[in-house]
Amino acid sequence: MTGTEAAALDPRDRGGPAQPLLIVNDLKRHFPIKGGFLNRTVATVQAVDGISFSVMKGETLGIVGESGCGKSTTARLLMRLLEPDGGEVIFDGEPVGPGGMALSEMRRQIQMVFQDSYASLNPRLPIEDSIAFAPAVHGVPKAKARARARDLLAAVGLAPEQFARRYPHELSGGQRQRVNIARALALEPRVIVLDEPVSALDKSVEAQVLNLLVDLKRDFSLTYVFISHDLNVVQFISDRVLVMYLGQVAEVGPVASIYGGPRHPYTRALLASRPSMDPAKRMTEPPLTGDPPNPINPPSGCRFRTRCTFAEEVCAARPPPLAGLVAHDAHLAACHMAAKGSGHSRAPT
């Protein structure tokens, strides 16, 4: 049974298997920087600047990008932990917000796991109480919520009789992240947004948690939005991948297509920056020079042009559209070199 079929059998399903579970349209969030006389706004960080994507039922969308590209802000906008300045989020066909799906209902359906496993747990609550807390708030009787918490602990590989009454500081980082995942499952969500869930873990433990996430997705018919800076991890877990650069989508498409035939020079550089682990294949030149520019004053036109070896006049003049090579292309890139008739000398004719 594929993820999509599993999702279609879900009694909560409204739109059917072809309806994306999440549609994000032109989402924006700018952070003002205050300063100077009368604390006026002196600049704006364009953290997320008009991004659109969709997540199909039962799939894992991986979001990659460097620090400051807006991937965590995107996660927080999805959860409405931050108010967007523009754009909309549509959950299974229903817009989230006034007149549509209530925020409390949306947050029941979308849960989140954060990078810092310690900071996201209450240090004064035994872990089973942390897991049972949200269901109790949402009206599940206490005893029932606690019984379910113990089931979930077992599901994430922590024996309840041994771990249920422990406090977060008594657990290792990997165990705490398992608790966070169990807590995210407590409200039976349909989507889990995972923001760098394995970045703080050791490699041997990272593999355990990734295996667990794959199992849980199958067992609980979940849909994942998986945010990470680690390209190898994203390749392992994702069905589709979205590459962000300075608050915008650089490229999006099926995982095999992105990793096998990246069209955006930024994606190519990111992939080429991965060390190979084979000392005989050492790199001699870095694929990219410089740091990502400051999102306060992003470059005009294509935001990547200041680090791109192929930049031409058109790149500074106009932002490239996010487009495919053929009609209904699942693989889209925002690059003038991939757009017919863009005016770039390397554009397809």
């Binding site: 490699k203 041997s204 990272e206 593999a207 355990q208 392992f236």
Partner: peptide, 16 residues
């Protein structure tokens, strides 16, 4: 257990 290209769809050999 280190994730690298080509492991998609397989089970990672984690150290218990």
């Amino acid at each position: 257990s280190t994730v690298h290209a080509g492991l998609r769809g397989t089970r990672l050999a984690a150290i218990p």
